[in-house]
């Protein structure tokens, strides 16, 4: 058994190998997460942040290296079999939920994640009570709309439900892939607050990609910076708390020779 909740060992991934569009996305990526770590990830466009999360989730197989979640080597498992270890929230609020299905049905899918599907009825009465209670904790007034179609909800509400679904079975690892980037600032703040609450309450281990450096500093207990497919800066604890946006910018510039000055990361602050 591994002592870490997540181990990434020397991960490599090249897209479109052998074509004019060849792109090395991950290059010797190593990362170990302790149980309970809440890690924020920053880096420029194409640094490999989302690619790392997709590699962990198994969206496609990696070219080299090993991925171990909670002591289980998942490197060769297909995406749907890794889901039992993971909770995922995506950038696009439409991606995390099924629009044509009701809130309770979406939650029911999450509560059966990784379990063998049977011919038992999809949502039971006892479950609905549990869902109502969990939804009321979100404080968005969704607890009375269990049978509403998710497609009728706003982006923020959908993201909040996706968070609830992701955390439903206390996954080994929560993957948040710029999950507030598509929301307006007020809604984004609310969804971040819910994220914090859920991570804290369930003592989850989490990875959060963000373009907002301020968020990266204020949330979580550890911060990593990625560049060209691997981690170039890893800071945690008191040292992280003491960080300023200007410190991070300086790090960026050191790493990339000033290229980040034009990056949209600057604009995000």
């Amino acid at each position: 058994m591994s002592e870490y909740m997540l181990e990434l060992r020397d991960i490599h991934k090249v897209f479109n190998r052998g074509t004019i569009n060849e792109k090395t996305a991950l290059c010797g990526l190593n990362l170990n997460l302790n149980a309970g770590d809440f890690v924020t990830i920053i880096g420029g466009n194409g640094a490999g942040k989302s690619t790392m999360l997709n590699a962990i989730a198994g969206v496609w197989p990696v070219d080299g290296g090993q991925i171990v979640i909670g002591g289980n080597d998942v490197t060769k498992l297909p995406e749907h079999k890794r889901a039992v270890f993971l909770g995922r929230v995506f950038q696009d609020p439409m991606t995390g939920t099924a629009a044509t299905m009701s809130i309770e049905e979406n939650l029911a899918l999450a509560s059966r994640r990784g379990k063998h599907k049977t011919l038992r009825w999809g949502v039971t009465k006892q479950e609905k009570e549990l869902y109502r209670q969990k939804l009321s904790e979100l404080d968005l007034g969704l607890e009375d709309r269990l049978s509403s179609k998710v497609g009728l909800l706003s982006g923020g509400q959908r993201q909040a439900i996706t968070l609830l679904m992701a955390a439903f079975q206390n996954p080994d690892l929560l993957l948040l892939d710029e999950h507030t980037a598509a929301l307006d600032p007020k809604t984004a703040a609310k969804v971040l607050e819910i994220s914090d609450k859920i991570v804290e309450k369930n003592k989850l281990t989490a990875l959060m990609v963000t373009h907002n450096m301020k968020d990266a500093i204020t949330h979580g207990n550890r911060l990593i910076m990625m560049h060209e497919g691997h981690v170039i800066y890893d800071v945690s604890g008191e040292e992280k708390k003491a960080l300023h946006v200007s410190d991070l910018l300086k790090r960026f510039e050191e790493a990339s020779g000033g290229h980040f000055a034009n990056d949209r990361m600057m604009l995000a602050n």
């Binding site: 889901a83 099924a98 949502v123």
Partner: peptide, 19 residues
């Protein structure tokens, strides 16, 4: 049946939910 409807609606979400 629910898993089938989820697959038809949103494959990314379905895979993320272990379907």
């Amino acid at each position: 049946g629910q898993a089938i409807r989820a697959t038809g609606c949103n494959e990314n979400m379905s895979r993320a939910q272990g379907i």
